[in-house]
């Protein structure tokens, strides 16, 4: 944390130390730009977008780039996963900055730039590739710690996998329209007091309507010695017919 590093610098003899307490979230909120580091651009689980023309992109681009010329960005928004960290570059700083603003306005929370844009990448000794451009985006969110993937969850929901049980922590109201077959329903605020209803000898896959409460419930269960995992997905049910959107 910044205050600790500042303390270390003071101890080390630095006389002029300041701390930007609001930090990066405030910086971004004020509409300012942030930059991805070279290693993350080369290997990170990101969507890397080349905003230049297809012609320029074909002649030389950063490996793993998807080519989306800036004037077509609007049309491609549906293809860019909203949860993905997006890294952009162009040959025009103005264009790249505008694209950051556009994406943030559209609800993308992690939008960063390549420092110095394409020229900056080349100058920093970054690798490039040429040839036919790539336009398809293949990005998959990596599961967070303690999360269960949709596929694994569905195996249990369908009864194909019996090593786990599903715990529904939505409110009684929410659950009244329907839920997964064989799920145990215990609203989040009652999980702690109704542990007896939740089997301890199986894995527990927890869901709610988005994942926020499932996360909290899984933590509560883990605290009590369960092997619990949570599903991050939007869930709507009618009877036993549930729509899962991750």
């Amino acid at each position: 944390m910044s205050t600790k590093v500042a303390g270390s610098a003071i101890k080390d003899g630095y006389k002029n130390v300041r701390v930007y307490l609001q930090g990066q979230p405030a910086w971004i909120k004020a509409g300012n730009l942030v930059y991805a580091s070279k290693g993350n651009i080369a290997k990170g689980n990101i969507v890397l977008i080349d905003l230049r023309s297809k012609k320029k992109s074909a002649a030389g681009r950063i490996p793993r780039s998807v080519t989306i010329p800036y004037d077509t960005l609007d049309d491609r928004l549906d293809d860019i996963p909203i949860k993905a960290p997006v890294v952009l570059y162009s040959d025009s700083a103005e264009e790249a900055n505008e694209a950051v603003e556009d994406l943030r306005d559209e609800g993308y929370k992690k939008v960063a730039l390549v420092s110095g844009n394409y020229a900056g990448w080349v100058k920093a000794g970054g690798k490039t590739v040429k040839g036919p451009v790539v336009t398809d985006i293949n990005w998959k969110r990596k599961l967070g710690k303690g999360e269960v993937g949709k596929a694994d969850f569905l195996k249990v929901a369908s009864g194909a996998d019996t090593s786990a049980v599903i715990l529904d922590v939505r409110t009684k109201d929410e659950a009244s329209a329907g839920g997964f077959k064989n799920a145990i329903a215990v609203p989040l605020d009652q999980v702690g007091s109704r542990l007896a209803e939740i089997p301890k000898d199986k894995k527990i896959y927890v869901h709610c309507t988005t994942g926020a409460r499932a996360d909290m419930a899984a933590q509560e269960l883990k605290k009590n010695g369960y092997k619990a995992f949570y599903l991050v997905a939007n869930i709507e049910c009618e009877g036993n017919d549930c729509d899962i959107e991750d």
Partner: peptide
């Protein structure tokens, strides 16, 4: 710190992180 911070200890350093 030795490779990143300036040798001159009177120079200004600004630190930040993920917010308080």
């Amino acid at each position: 710190a030795p490779s990143i911070l300036p040798k001159d200890k009177n120079k200004l350093l600004i630190m930040y992180c993920g917010g308080p």
